[in-house]
Design a protein around this nucleic acid. Structure first.
Length: 132
DNA sequence: TGTATGACCCTGA
DNA sequence: CTCAGGGCCATAC
């Protein structure tokens, strides 16, 4: 029936590796790995958050959470990505507590109805997989 | 070519 | 909870 309670990440999978290691130093706009990451981030439902690792996995890059961070950093503002919906493992905001980015992310998340407390988001807002 | 850095993650003590 | 250590990989210099 419906509601298999699959996480948003599980729904993504068709790509089957984006090429696994594009050793070609191409600009971000042509880098398939980055594009995949952007695509995934863009697909995160409003009011829900995802971790860097989850995004990487969903993009076909398991174990490369760092690249997710890099992808977000180099992402053109033009794409207007919901970067604020990406948090660290356990739902914590990775930016320094007193940084501008930290507050901005928290503010945006709250605006979407996500409860942010002490630099962390509520468990209920996470990909439904970190439940534990 | 080698070292350093980073919007990370996981395990174990 | 904190802290330390190892892993992973793309860029920058």
């Amino acid at each position: 029936m419906v509601s298999p309670k699959k996480s948003f990440v599980e729904l993504f999978h068709p790509l089957g590796s984006v090429g696994s290691r594009s050793r070609r130093r191409s600009p971000p706009e042509e880098n398939p790995a980055l594009e995949a990451i952007w695509h995934v981030v863009c697909a995160i439902p409003r009011g829900q958050v995802c971790t860097y690792g989850e995004v990487a996995r969903a993009a076909g890059l398991p174990g490369r959470a760092r690249q997710t961070g890099f992808a977000l950093k180099v992402a053109p503002q033009k794409l207007n990505l919901p970067w604020h919906r990406v948090v660290g493992a356990g739902g914590c905001i990775v930016f320094p507590k007193s940084s501008h980015e930290h507050r901005e992310q928290a503010r945006r998340l709250r605006a979407e109805g996500v409860l942010v407390k002490n630099g962390r988001v509520a468990r209920s807002a996470m990909g439904l997989l970190d439940e534990r």
